[in-house]
Structure formats: structure tokens, C-alpha cells
Amino acid sequence: MQKLLKVYGADVKVSDINTLADEHTSNVDYVFIDYESIQAINPQSLVNSLANTLEQGRIILLHLPTNPLPKALDTKVTSLNKPITQTNLLRVAGFEVSENEPLYLLSENRTTENDITADVLTQLKGCRILIVDDNDINIEVALGALDGLPIEVITAQNGQEALEILLNSKASNEVIHCILMDCQMPVLNGYEVCEKIRAAEAGQYYAQIPIIAMTASAMAGEKEKCIAVGMSDYVSKPIQAHEVQSKVVKWSLSNYEGDSLSTEQSNLEPLWDREQALVRLLNKEALLIKICEMFITKAPLRLKELQSQINAKDSEQVRQVAHALKGMCGEISASHLRSLFADVEKKASQGNLNLEKTIIEIEQILTQLITDITQWLEEN
């Protein structure tokens, strides 16, 4: 919890139950307490004491679903069920999280945005990013955020220069895969450039390229304005390094298919995490068995449907089927396969159906996964 909240910019202090009452909590926004650890020391008294010292802060009790809070406590605190997901933790702590954000379980083994896996770094190798900004300092800050990634970065000082770079890059076969662009620039501003790119004035090849806006405006509706002109995403200035890095990685991989780790390396990763799936289902093994039986029957059929829609070049249907398959993999904690379907979903949402390599990998992994699940079912 501490590590994740710090990544998102929170000032975090850790205290044990014995010293919590002595802490100065008047200027604290949130107090997270593990309910099971305070049951032996009169939770009601502790909560009342904290409520009296907090000026505007909230008390959040983490508890097991099988151990509900007494009504007297429930009205004074915000409750959060364990096991905690990163998404739910961030939401209850006041951070804005997309409704589509996956519900990853919070654990020390889970990476944050700054902890990029070796497989992702391998996939990024050879990717080209275009940064467009008329301010040299802003460009340096963005370059610093992307430092360490195995990518090539090209810079432009204004929108017209960006369009020329795009046109020349395709001609020289040194294509750009993602654009990070300031909204307010001379000659052509970011909004105008985005509209021209979407209208294929930089070539049809770039009409759907991911474009991440950099905007200094905190006004309501700015995000909607960026999306309305065709931006894929946006970050607010002054930019946060981890946010820029995270979004550039995400959108670059939606449009760039580099090499993955070798098959031998991939085979070292578990096809699915049965223990994590059980935790999510409150250790109800009978329920997991039922879900697995449904998975091995339905997943191959949905994959055939996915391939059929790809052949029909129906991007929206491809996106919908990939989204459903992503959810099915999430139910059994098949993380790698889930990430592959998420990649298909993102590409399809941008009209990119160049998915042959990904589909081949999905077929191989799904076959292995079904064999593994079938063997486990037979043993149970």
C-alpha cells in the first residue's frame, strides 16, 4: 500500500496500532486501518478517538468479507474488503482511476508503473516516439521521463515540423509509433496538428497513430476537448515522470509489435495463478472448478469467433470479443493471456487489425492453458 500510494504522489506515514493514538492526525486526509488487527483492542473506542482528532480526514477500515463491520462502526468509516485491489485502493484514496482499469490484487509482487517487466522492455525495443513541444525545457523533462526505455525519440519544435517529420519518416521507412505533443504551440497548435493527422494529412499510415496530449490547462472539459479532436490520451503539466512513462509505454505497445521474450523464457511463466484465483473467490474451490469447466469449453469457441471477425475486418466486433476473452482470463488469473487479449482489444479500438503474430501466440498459450486446467480438473 505504502509503495503504491507514494508512486501516485501521496505523502505516506506508517504507524503501528500501539502508537497510532499518539500520532498527530489532524492534518491527515486518510487513515487506513486493518480491522482484524484492532479487534482485540476495542475498535469502537479507537475509531471514536481518531474521528475526534481528524479535521476533514476519512477513516478506512480494511476487513475480510467474512468479517463484516459492526453497524456502529460502519456508519463512521469507509470499508474496503480484503484482498485489496490496486484500483479500489486508489479510488478510495481519492485518485481518479478509469472505470476500465483492471482490478489487480495488491501485493509486493505486483509492479507499479515504474517497474516495467523485461518482456515489455523487449517488446519496446526499436519503437520510435515523437515529442512535439516548442519549449526546450519541457522536451528535456519528457526525455528524462522516458530515459532508460529501449526506444528512439525524435523531437519537433512545432506542429508543422511534426507533420513534415511524419511524412519523411514513412518515406524513409523509419516510422513513428506514438506521439507526445504539447497543445499550445506556434505555427500549428496541438489540436490543429491532431486534426490534420486524423484527416490523413501526414499520410494514411498515421491516421490512427496514438497521440498523447500535454496540456497545462486544469480547466474542466480539457480532457473532453483533447478527445474531441482525436487525441488518444492526455497528461497535465507539470508532467509526472511515472505518468508519462506509463502512458507512452501503454500506447506505444498498442501500435508497435516488437519482439517478445523467447518461447523458452515465456514457458517459465505460469499459465495461470490458481492460488490467486482462489483468493479472489474467497477460497471456494468448487466455484473455481465450475469457472474452469466453463472456460475450457467457451474460450476456444470465442477465439474462433475472434478470428472470424478479424477475417471480416470488423474492428468493433473484434474489440468486443477480445474484451470478453480478456475478462474470462482474468477470472482464472491467466495474466499473460489476459494481457494479450487486452493488446488485441486496444489495437482493434484503433482500427488496427494487424494481429497475426499475437493470434498465433494466443493460440499456443490457450492450448497449453486448457491442457493444464484439464489436468487439474481431473485431479480434483
Rank of each mutant, 00 (worst) to 15 (best):
L163E: 01
Q39V: 10
E269G: 06
G230F: 02
N18D: 03
K290N: 04
K357R: 15
P68V: 03
L366P: 08
A286E: 09
T111P: 15
S333F: 00
R338V: 04
Y191S: 08
N255T: 00
N114I: 12
D16F: 10
K237A: 10
I33W: 04
P65A: 02
S49D: 14
Q123P: 05
E222M: 01
I197S: 09
E331C: 08
D22L: 11
I179W: 01
V153R: 09
I360T: 11
K76H: 09
I131C: 13
V279C: 06
K196C: 09
T78W: 03
G94I: 06
P102A: 08
S349L: 02
G327K: 13
Y191N: 01
A162P: 13
L306E: 04
I227Y: 02
I165R: 12
S349F: 04
T85E: 00
G258M: 07
I38M: 11
I332R: 00
S79I: 00
N354R: 15
E363H: 10
K82G: 13
E195A: 14
V187L: 06
Q160A: 13
L61D: 09
I165L: 15
M219L: 15
Y205G: 09
I296D: 05
E305V: 14
S236M: 02
E224G: 00
K347R: 15
N311W: 07
S308N: 14
Q208N: 15
I139R: 10
L46Q: 05
N189V: 02
Q184F: 15
T111R: 05
N267K: 15
P102S: 01
C329P: 08
A93C: 14
N380Y: 08
N354H: 14
S169N: 11
N81D: 14
L143M: 13
S49P: 12
T66N: 12
A218T: 15
Q265F: 07
L106K: 09
Q86I: 11
S26D: 14
E345Q: 10
R128H: 13
V248K: 04
D34L: 05
L121V: 01
S45V: 07
A334P: 01
T111N: 07
H63N: 13
L278T: 07
D372W: 03
E293H: 09
E293W: 01
I362A: 01
I60W: 03
S49R: 15
V14E: 04
K346A: 15
L325P: 10
P102H: 07
T19N: 14
K71Q: 12
L106D: 02
V249S: 07
Q309C: 14
